[in-house]
Design a protein around this nucleic acid. Structure first.
Lengths: 251, 251
DNA sequence: AGTACATTGCGTCATAATAACACATTTGAC
DNA sequence: GTCAAATGTGTTATTATGACGCAATGTACT
């Protein structure tokens, strides 16, 4: 980080940053991957800067990996944020002070940054966030209990969630969010959690089944209270096909 | 422009630009507003740079106005483009050479720019593109006959059109694209042109009527071949309501 | 004036999608 | 064994959709 700030003018895209909204699903909760840096009381989205020799989409993957250790996931760009006062003077100065950097050298940091938002849905269990930087804390936090975030990160998070809800109508989800074998109630809970809305059990099942991306397994979930639900898996081939063509055509 | 390039480091957001895809509808054709600058054989989208004291959304309006004279339209951000070789060295050097600027002073221009794309649907007739810069040519061009464009502008244009087609399923359109009074076939042609697809006349009418955003006028179009179609207008209040709430909910 | 033809307005019909709900079955808890 | 909670598999009514039919309107042409 320190190395970055000093070398910024040469090796990084000026005035631009990337912030990632990483959604995971666990215990029937939609979780978001957040980072807490020591020089602030607030949490933040994992973000960073754009190497001048990388496409921004590639840079998003790099940034996420450097901040969290998370690897090999597909990040979807959803919006750019560029209000003039989105990163105020104060914030930049705090960082410089904390890192003991000459305010003149780090001047660029206190100017307005435009940030590009990326989001992803990942398997909660497969992502074990490494603590790359020993003084940073990385945690999955329930999206309903997200504390105050730095800058406009809350706005970015909300926009990501809005985008996700819209995309839910255009494409199937769940492949990276659920274990390989899952029950219908689990899949439904995922949808309900993202949409923050109750769905009818029977209508949900019919609709999701008709999409044709599920394989019903000859196996039941065990160690559950009450009647054991059947298990399903995604038919990856058909899943990808639907991903490509979209769900509804509308007109 | 020249003033801008020399003063850039101080007054504009570095490394970032904005490009606008302005769609208009006329003669049953979807038109795009394009600009031809003298220092290139190719056409380009109206674009420009971001004043450091403006929100990017505001800057988009400013940029469009400065390049085309177009005023007071809502621009929708749809994507950021940032491949490392999207603006190659060659392009920047050409511009500097044409403007007779010391390559050292304009060095920043030859680096990678990330551009943020905005699109809008506007009334073809209400927008009379002024030629601000006497050596620039501004024209409405049929989107099916768009010539080769500079840099990745064709990609930007295509992405805008893709976004527009998706949004067509989520919200009503036409308010800024058609005259105040319009016939059903005119509205249908608009949809068909954007989607590049034939729609059934009768089903289209039923569906669009059911949305509840149209007011049937007691008036017929005149000076037309064959049977005169009835005229309609948008019920702005309901139109805005649907715009806010969206069309389909899906889940 | 009369006819041909393109276009509009207003239908129908079969099918699919959706919302709301009924009922029997399975399983753990008491 | 009985109860409660959850699952599996329906039904029914309503609405939306896609594919047409046909009469009415107005222009163009003989």
């Amino acid at each position: 980080m320190l190395k970055f700030i000093i070398e910024n003018n040469e090796n990084y895209q000026p005035g631009l940053s990337i912030d990632c909204v990483i959604f995971g699903f666990h215990d029937n909760q939609l979780k978001v991957l957040l980072i807490k840096v020591p020089h602030s009381e607030k949490w933040s989205l994992p973000g960073g800067f754009i190497p001048i020799d990388q496409d921004i989409d590639t840079a998003a993957v790099t940034v996420l990996n450097e901040r969290t250790g998370v690897e090999g996931i597909f990040l979807r760009q959803f919006a750019a944020f560029g209000k003039i006062k989105r990163n105020d003077d104060h914030f930049g100065k705090e960082v410089l002070k904390y890192l003991n950097i000459d305010p003149e050298k780090g001047k660029w940091l206190t100017r307005r940054f435009v940030t590009i938002g990326y989001y992803a849905l990942v398997d909660f269990l497969k992502i074990v966030p490494n603590r790359i930087n020993s003084n940073e804390i990385i945690e999955w936090i329930d999206h309903k209990e997200v504390p105050e975030l730095i800058l406009d990160h809350k706005e970015i998070l909300n926009k990501a969630l809005d985008t996700l809800r819209i995309e839910l109508n255009l494409m199937p989800i769940g492949y990276n969010l659920l274990p390989e074998k899952f029950s219908m109630p689990e899949l439904q809970k995922l949808y309900e959690t993202i949409l923050d809305k109750k769905l009818d059990r029977r209508n949900f099942m019919r609709k999701i089944t008709n999409i044709g991306i599920l394989t019903k397994l000859d196996e039941k979930k065990n160690n559950v209270a009450h009647k054991a639900p059947n298990l399903y898996s995604f038919d990856k081939e058909k899943y990808d096909e639907v991903l490509k063509n979209g769900l509804n055509q509308g007109w």
